[in-house]
Simulated scan of single mutants.
Amino acid sequence: MKEQTYRVFEAIKLDPLASQQSLADRLDMSRESVAGHIMQLTRQGYILGKGYLLAEQNTYVVIGGANVDINGHSGTSLALHDSNPGTITQSPGGVGRNIAENLARLGEHVHLIAPIGVDQRGDWLIEKTRLSGVETHNVLRHDTLPTGTYLAISNDCGELQAAIADMRIIDSLDEHKLSTKQALLQSAYSIVVDANLTVKSIEWLAQQPLEALFIADAVSTAKAPRLRSILPKLSLLKVNQDEARAILDSNEEIPEKLAEALLAKGVKEVLLSLGSQGVLFANAENSQRKACHPTLPVSDTGAGDALLAGYLSACQQNKKLDQALSFALACAAMTLESAHANHPELTVQHVTQWIENL
């Protein structure tokens, strides 16, 4: 940032509602010059909107799916092709939205960019997300497509047996709509994308001259290959083993070799979920496995989203690698013990206490 532009920026920080003329008088500059510097600050993402809304440090922007989760949990051993007694619940979901909520609950400042329908479910979803602490004013409403819905069936052990995802609306989040959020993207500390986005949207993001760290969640085996074009841009990639094999088009069975292959593609850090075996972290200097914490699962929906958010939060807390992985796994374990995709008491304090009580 040039010196004169920096002076204008500092003056705005002191008085965000000041007029351009008052700023000019204070800085001994012309109003036209101040206006030019403000335009430059806006283009660069330091100013986000009217009233000189300033970009905040360490802001996450999460781009991806947001939908309503309808979860059926069988009360007895699941019988296929038959009706099963159990419970049915509704909760906010979507990989991107879940990650955003978890980050917000862990104390991070998070904006969500996601397409949501103009319908009753959409209104409910936005309100629930806002109440969790996520900034929702960048959500994009779609007036013809319905809000995404994810229907999951779990057995009596909480293990997912089948699911149907109506996510047609996510394809409406194209590069044109993303370009309307350019100022927010420019201001972000980290941008988290999930592979629900279309290949074109992911490629558009990869081509933007952004300073933010790029982080991605592979979502599923079918969608993970969409991230191939952005791999060299990624500071962190969270995948499971099947998703890693799908990205690499590989039959490799050894987790460490999967991680090495992803690093060779340009990914800076890999967070490889090993399911019930824990997690593997790898970068150019380190490779470390960490076993899961003991837990009594209720539902495994959202556990991977909590794992990623927990790791990012731990990094912001400047935890050492072993502690960061333990914290991330604790977030996942607490979510496994919840009937919903997001644990309602997922805070740094509660996660820390949960670990101490093991």
Rank of each mutant, 00 (worst) to 15 (best):
S154K: 06
Y6E: 11
V351W: 03
Q208K: 01
L336M: 14
T352I: 10
G93M: 01
K13L: 04
D156E: 13
T89A: 05
P255N: 01
Q353V: 07
F327N: 04
S33I: 06
S326R: 03
W354C: 05
L48D: 00
A244F: 01
L27S: 15
H176S: 14
D156Y: 06
G94E: 00
R97C: 00
G96T: 00
S74N: 10
R121V: 03
R168W: 14
V118C: 13
N138Y: 15
I215A: 03
S250Q: 01
Q288D: 08
L258C: 11
A195N: 01
D28T: 10
S313H: 12
T5G: 00
A309K: 10
R228W: 06
V95Q: 01
R228T: 07
K238V: 11
L236C: 11
V192C: 02
D15L: 08
K223Q: 01
T180I: 11
P225H: 12
S74L: 14
A244C: 12
M39H: 15
D69H: 07
L54D: 03
T144I: 06
L205T: 03
G107Q: 05
G45V: 06
Y60R: 00
N155I: 15
A104L: 09
T352Q: 08
S250E: 08
E32H: 14
E345I: 09
H350V: 14
E3W: 11
N58S: 15
L271F: 06
A11E: 12
W124V: 09
T352C: 08
L258G: 08
D171L: 09
G158T: 04
A206R: 02
W204S: 01
L307V: 02
T136L: 07
L262M: 15
P255I: 05
H142S: 10
C292E: 13
Q316G: 06
A24H: 03
R7Y: 12
L197W: 07
I254Y: 15
G302C: 11
A303I: 12
E3P: 15
L48Q: 04
H142R: 08
K50V: 14
L325N: 06
E203F: 05
A314Y: 03
R245V: 07
L227W: 04
A324P: 01
Q182S: 00
K50N: 13
P146H: 15
V219A: 08
C331F: 03
I164L: 09
I355R: 10
L125E: 06
Q323F: 10
E345D: 14
M334C: 08
T147H: 04
A246L: 05
K320N: 15
I169M: 00
D123F: 04
L17W: 11
E135L: 08
N286Q: 15
A212N: 05
L140W: 08
L145G: 00
A291C: 13
I170G: 00
P225R: 06
E159M: 02
L184S: 05
L103S: 13
V279N: 02
A264S: 08
V62W: 02
S83P: 09
I254W: 14
D28C: 05
R121M: 09
T198V: 07
A291D: 15
L274V: 01
N342A: 07
L271C: 11
L234Q: 07
L54S: 02
L53P: 06
V298S: 12
L151N: 00
T59I: 15
S220N: 10
V95A: 04
D322T: 14
G310Q: 02
M334R: 02
A162E: 01
Q241N: 08
